[in-house]
Design a binder for these strands. Structure first.
Length: 629
RNA sequence: GCCCAUGUAGCUCAGUUGGCAGAGCACGUCCUUGGUAAGGACGAGGUCAUCGGUUCAAACCCGAUCGUGGGCUCCA
């Protein structure tokens, strides 16, 4: 998770050149699915309706999206609120009832330009200028509404059988906050009413899995924005169990893979970040510095004399600290690869509007490690890192994932990318080969590498379809040099090591947020905050003593067991345990106690029958140790 | 940061035209002695986010602030 660094270095080394606008080809447009055509057409209907209701609206664009469509408007006379939806939807329904034909026509560029200038549609004029010379400029007309559009569309407005406006949002023209802010209306459309209904129902279901909701219900984490601050989660006891189980997993896995652990402070002097390149270019994404002012004692009373200020910054990533650990001792090629691992705590001043539950926070604990190696060791190291990712995915049952392999663009060497053409080629070839050899599902994205080397972003999807960039794995052949890191080679020369940044489990915050939604809070036994609850039928003393004995035995074996010995009826106790998502419930009454047995109930699966108490303890301990799914 | 929505008990929410602050769950005490998703009674719990304004009277109307949520190029 070192994307932070990427940005800063880009800024240092390259004037952000104006990227050509990437455009869909007409072929790609023709390949639009039926559903996309429908939704795109519905966006036109939305624009038609808005223009009827507010004739002064200026239009931008209205593409289909994964879940529906949107259309962007500038409308000085009115601000959309959800209260307008009823009115707009009613007008859209009228347009659909009129069953207007979507008719395609073509204009010459000058003609099209004049057409929009005459209407004062300034965004359309700008969009028009995006169209490359030679490409046909087409229009679609439905009723009185004419829109610059490459299509394709459904035949008639009447083909739209089910639609709904979803929300209103602001959006900057071309997504750039320096541009005008437009009003965006989001909606969706489906083939028929049933599909719309079931989609809406699914959205409701998804809300129930939201990590913020489950996190509060299960007592995993809390946000105390009043006293602690926004984006600074507090891990409650049950959430801390998750954090520590993940750390144990990482420690074990990394130890077996030859990593060594280090620990570093949460802050460092200004010089650190000037060297790394974060300052001053990325200062606004870091918490402001702590300033230590040194009084000028020699000239007391001379307030004109500037005071010496020492600045410390909270770290936004761990790499610089790890680099300084590399530098702390003389290194030989014999020491490499050196794999430094730390669950490091970082702080990033994310914009207030960017904060989102556990997914986007201001304090984060990274499953970080930096592998310093020679070029000859690189491929093996990189392969091992990938295998670690896959091992984790297997443990968590993550089946849907994509690795985005970002490479450089040779035409931008020395600008956007460090000018080491041979090194780029060699490392990219090695990375690509590792990916192919490992049979990993990946997509290659040119021109998106970090300044200092190729990288892999790992994307996963939570059960409610939310996409997460959960981890990053980057090659770095530039920053070690900035910190003057070297090792003595076999030939007795000083060489700069390659560095692999990797964080397979991302940050605790984001990864646990993902896991909550992935499992809907129904964690596997080894992760479950409360693994076992021993429930008595009744509260008679011998029975309670028996139950307490079982709890003590389990806890002695490090099983997170609690007891429910109260006077409640058994149904009430079961309900509470199920609601709390306790993984295993051991129910005991006088019958079980007499036979030294327990009745085993598994969360979500119901009563699975009685077993010998000794057997159950052994099974539980084994399943936890093996991290059974 | 910006636009929209939103903020009432630990949680989910109600609160009529501006007129005594409410319910269910959770929590506490007691009763209930029971067999796998709610037995019962009583009780405690609130600066209606914060600050200011209008009013005889504000949870309610107005303004500001803070927080939270949705969104901010899936590209004619």
């Amino acid at each position: 998770m070192t994307f932070f660094l990427v940005v800063s270095l880009n800024v240092i080394m390259a004037e952000p050149e104006k990227e050509a606008v990437e455009r869909k080809t007409l072929e790609q447009r023709d390949a639009m699915s039926d559903l996309q055509k429908l939704r795109h057409s519905c966006a036109h209907v939305l624009a038609t309706a808005v223009l009827r209701l507010w004739p002064d609206a200026l239009l931008d664009i209205g593409p289909p999206t994964d879940e529906g469509f949107y259309y962007d408007f500038e409308l000085a006379s009115h601000r959309f609120t959800p209260d307008d939806f009823f009115k707009i939807e009613a007008e859209m329904t009228k347009v659909i009832k009129e069953n207007q034909v979507f008719a395609k026509s073509i204009m010459a560029r000058e003609e099209a330009h004049a057409f929009f200038v005459a209407q004062g549609q300034k965004y359309k004029v700008e969009r028009l200028s995006d169209i490359p010379a030679g490409e046909t400029i087409s229009f679609f007309t439905n009723g009185n509404f004419v829109d610059l559009c490459a299509g394709p569309h459904v035949m008639r407005t009447g083909n739209i059988k089910a639609f709904k406006l979803l929300r209103v949002a602001a959006a900057y023209f071309r997504g750039n906050e320096k541009n005008e802010q437009l009003q965006r209306l989001y909606g969706t459309a489906f083939k028929n009413k049933d599909e719309l209904e079931s989609w809406l129902k699914m959205q409701e279901e998804a809300k129930k899995r939201d990590h913020r909701k489950i996190g509060a219900e299960m007592g995993l984490f809390a946000m105390d924005t009043d006293y602690v601050g926004p984006g600074l989660p507090l891990w409650l006891p049950k959430g801390t169990v998750l954090v520590e189980e993940l750390e144990n997993l990482a420690k074990e896995t990394e130890f077996a893979a030859g990593y060594v652990r280090v620990r570093t402070p949460h802050l460092a002097r200004e010089k650190m970040y000037k060297t790394s390149g974060h300052l001053p270019y990325y200062a606004e994404s870091m918490f402001p510095p702590m300033e230590l002012v040194e009084e000028n004692s020699s000239k007391k009373g001379d307030s004109q004399e500037p005071l010496k200020v020492e600045r410390y910054y909270l770290k936004a990533m761990n790499c610089p600290h790890h680099h300084r650990i590399f530098a702390a001792e003389p290194r030989s090629y014999r020491d490499l690869p050196l794999r430094l691992a730390e669950y490091g705590t970082c702080y990033r001043y994310e914009q207030s509007g960017e904060l989102f539950g556990l997914m986007r926070v201001r304090s984060l604990n990274m499953n970080d490690a930096h592998i310093y190696c020679t070029e000859g060791q690189f491929a093996d190291e990189f392969r091992a890192v990938n295998e670690m990712y896959l091992k984790y995915f297997k443990i968590f049952g993550i089946e849907k994932y994509t690795m985005r392999f970002s490479t450089h663009d040779p035409s931008k060497l020395g600008l956007k990318f460090v000018n080491e053409p041979e090194l780029w080629k060699r490392t990219e070839d090695m990375v690509r080969k590792v990916l192919i050899d490992s049979g990993i599902n990946y997509v290659e994205v040119p021109n998106e590498a970090a300044f200092y080397g190729p990288k892999i972003d790992v994307q996963v999807w939570s059960a409610i379809g939310r996409e997460f960039t959960i981890a990053t794995n980057q090659v770095d052949f530039a920053v070690p040099a900035k910190f003057g890191l070297t090792y003595r080679s076999r030939e007795n020369t000083d060489e700069t090591p390659l560095c692999i940044h990797r964080a397979p489990l991302g940050t605790h915050e984001r990864f646990i947020g993902f896991l909550i939604e992935h499992y809907a809070g129904n964690f596997p036994l080894w992760l479950a905050p409360e693994q076992v609850r021993v429930i008595t039928i009744g509260d008679e003393e011998p029975l309670v003593a028996y139950a307490k004995e079982i709890v003590a035995e389990l806890r002695a074996q490090q099983v997170r067991a609690e007891g429910d010995y109260g006077t409640d009826k058994i149904n009430g106790k079961i309900l509470r345990a199920e609601t709390a998502k306790v993984h295993t419930m051991l129910v005991i009454g006088s019958r079980e106690m007499a036979a030294n047995q327990v009745a085993v109930r598994i969360h979500g699966k119901g009563n699975t029958g009685v077993k010998l108490r000794s057997e159950v303890v052994v099974d539980l301990v084994k399943a936890i140790k093996e991290r059974e799914a």
